[in-house]
Design a protein around this nucleic acid. Structure first.
Lengths: 186, 186
DNA sequence: TGCAGCATGTAATTTGTTACATGATTAA
DNA sequence: TTAATCATGTAACAAATTACATGCTGCA
């Protein structure tokens, strides 16, 4: 039985190309903006992904010569590519995985000095602020062009980041000595 | 310059052993319960991690013979292991990564039939329910033994999952034809 | 003078997943 | 009798990260 595919870097690149032809460099920008909060990919996976899609006829490559720079390679999705993408989208239970070294670290907060814990929490809040700002910016610049799915996804990101920020702010006191002595004496 | 380590499977296993000696099989249970919402690891990474920690003197292995079953190998953290763990915890900016094939799929919802979108959303809510229940159960059974960090982490998981559930329930209507025709006619 | 941006790619390495391999005990 | 739990591990594979490699343009 042939199962429906997974949304790996290849397939996400293919999906991005349904919005219009683009180069690997262009796709990287999407991974750094709209997709940044839930799907990471660097040139080291994007370029091989596009080559492989090309070999398999999922995309066509248009080489645009440039002076000085390497040829700009603009990829267009093909009919086969669309079919393949639709198949990948058929998976009824796509995963949503979290891999958090932050939480793994906080599990052992009792082994850390308070100042160190505070730094870790502050850096997490900075990260939240970064993503919140970034999503708001991309929304402001191009949300009107987006299909409903992308709006849903951007809103999802904002909601999750906001929840993270709120939780960290409201519960960080649980992690420090101050609170330990308070609960011991209070 | 020697940078502070990362919280990979090895290091998380080492951290788990600060709670008391345990076997690979025991650690797997932690990965399936308390750590499940933010750190995945299977036997294929746990056993090699423990072997490698043993070789490097981070842990000692106590072999307990059993009838029928293979020897139970119980690992104890050593002083060097503790030093190494503390070093790993020094990273002031531990990452929190999301890899979501669910959101990647929803980006292309406009290419999917409504029924398919609904299935994907329902499966996501089921996943939320699973994690919520699981965290509540482990909290009920052993939260009193936990250091504050673990309580913080469990609460974090519940808050994030709750936020996800709420967002999906309140915004799923944005993704279907029904809403598209409503907004076109309304 | 130097850095950021444009623009591509490969190769080595790291990391983790999946499948394979074994086999007793116990409860439904 | 059949599935789950206990209990370990390896080998092949997949996937992605990092470092390497090149080189022009334009801004500060």
């Amino acid at each position: 039985m042939e199962t429906s595919g997974t949304m790996d870097v290849r397939t996400v690149c293919l999906g991005m190309l349904t919005d219009g032809a683009a180069s690997g460099y262009d796709l990287k920008k999407h991974f750094e903006s709209t997709f940044a909060h839930f799907f990471a990919a660097g040139y080291g996976s994007i370029y091989p992904a596009l080559s492989s899609l090309c070999e398999q006829g999922m995309v066509n490559c248009e080489c645009i010569p440039q002076d000085g720079k390497p040829d700009r390679k603009v990829y267009h999705i093909t009919a086969e590519g669309r079919t393949f993408l639709l198949k990948a989208l058929e998976n009824p239970t796509p995963c949503h995985k979290v891999r958090s070294e932050f939480l793994a670290t906080m599990c052992f907060a009792h082994l850390m000095p308070d100042a160190q814990i505070e730094k870790v929490l502050d850096s997490r809040l900075e990260d939240c602020a970064y993503y919140t700002k970034m999503i708001s910016e991309v929304e402001a610049s191009c949300m009107q062009d987006w299909p409903p799915g992308k709006r849903f996804v951007a809103g999802f990101g904002k909601a999750m980041i906001e929840a993270m920020k709120t939780y960290v702010e409201e519960n960080r006191h649980l992690l420090t000595e101050e609170s330990a002595s308070k609960s011991a004496t209070g």
